[in-house]
Design a binder for these strands. Structure first.
Lengths: 240, 240
DNA sequence: TGACAAAGTTAGGTATAACTAACTATACTA
DNA sequence: TAGTATAGTTAGTTATACCTAACTTTGTCA
């Protein structure tokens, strides 16, 4: 039970670590102003973050002094940078995403992809490179493939049933009742009026604040309160 | 200037939307308890999130009532689910990551990958599938490639110079001074004592609280305060 | 050396997103 | 139909991570 290494750094703190690591570069030193600029935050936010990093033993920080990373801080920062580079490299070299868009996406994704995915990604980049040397350039081949079918946006995975509440239907639209939600009391009242699943109805008029809503069904008119209408789930686009 | 659609949903709210969308499934209705369970949060947190989603016009919510998504909410949820599926599919089918790890990673990454990356990813999955039909199974080939070189963890992108403050060096270790940070006053004082970049020194004793630190350099001993030592950046692993 | 600008800090405030504990509404069941 | 279990809400607290405005420290230069 002796102080297990607490690796649970927030994405924000990892960003600070990475920024300091990158700024340190040649001089091993980062200045608060530059950290603030590179992360696009106020100077005072940097002060706060540095206090936390110091408390976690990742940065050497004393007020009004230069900032350096401890060994532990450097290790984490190096890992973040490594992830960042792997992800960017994949986006740019394999997927062919534009460099600055890839950079931004990588910066956001680097905190969320775990070691399994990262190592596979690294391996995959190696695979693509090796293949490219063997005469079959995968990245190139993929680029050609992309051009041949530019807009293939069909990957829904789930059949989108466009079911909405009756309170969202606009005047003039026809729809079919799919299901009625709600407690027995209200439910029964409107069921008595012929409002049951399967019924096709047409919205005729919606009052300014959406209450009440006038609908036509089975030849007669009905005025529903918005609260009731929201409980009647309907399917749009009924031609008849 | 008429109310431009505010698409800036937090990752947390997108998660709620996705959970409601998935729970709704057959019945078009989600219950607070189930949302809480599927996201692993307290029931009261769901109430709070639902209030926000209602205010943004994404969910139909009234206290003690069932929850449904508005058309707008459904659209966003469907997009999140779509992303989720694309990312998971890529992780599992192309990279060969284990399904539940891929699910978790996808769930975290789905909020951070923008449309460019997602569309490329989608396209890439199509590319891999097509290739697999043409006799060259890319995913399979990659799996074999992975096995042939299991531990290829070299992707640093940046030369890791293991430079730390002298205050982090343990007794007995030798190191070389790389750089001295700090204001002229202190800087000059220790420079006069022979502490200049390039010097190799050995840490002899560190007092209990890390202050002072006794070092040996150029044949004589020196006692440094921790504050001073932290400003002396050194490179570890000097054999001589 | 003393005034000034730049860098850094503090204080105080906001928003998000979670929690626990206590309360209230709803639904079920005898 | 009364009592109770469950679901849902409110109130109050915590932690993160940002902000602005005002203050302090530091370094430079005339």
């Amino acid at each position: 039970m002796t102080a297990i290494k607490d690796n649970n750094l927030s994405a924000s703190l990892e960003d600070y670590l990475e920024a300091i690591f990158n700024l340190a570069g040649a001089s091993n030193v980062a200045r608060s102003k530059d950290i603030a600029k590179s992360l696009g935050v106020a100077r005072s936010s940097v002060t706060g973050a540095l206090r936390v990093l110091k408390k976690k033993g990742l940065a050497n920080y004393r007020p009004y002094d230069y900032v350096t990373l401890t060994k532990a801080g450097q290790d984490i920062a190096a890992e973040v940078v490594r992830k960042h580079n792997i992800i960017t490299s994949f986006f740019v070299n394999v997927l062919g995403v534009e460099t600055d868009i890839a950079q931004q996406a990588a910066c956001r994704a680097e905190h969320t992809l775990g070691p399994e995915v990262i190592s596979k990604l690294l391996c995959f980049i190696g695979f693509v490179n090796k293949n490219s040397k063997n005469g079959y350039d995968l990245a190139d081949e993929f680029k050609r493939f992309c051009k041949s079918r530019p807009q293939n946006n069909s990957f829904s995975g789930k059949q989108m049933s466009s079911t909405v509440g009756l309170d969202e239907v606009k005047p003039g639209q026809k729809c079919k009742i799919v299901r009625i939600i709600g407690r027995s009391g209200v439910n029964k009242r409107i069921a008595d009026m012929g409002v049951v699943p399967g019924t096709i109805l047409e919205v005729q008029r919606v009052a300014p604040l959406g209450d009440p809503i006038d609908v036509k069904l089975k030849g007669y008119r009905l005025s529903l309160r918005k609260e009731e209408a929201s409980k009647i789930m309907v399917e749009l686009g009924q031609s008849e």
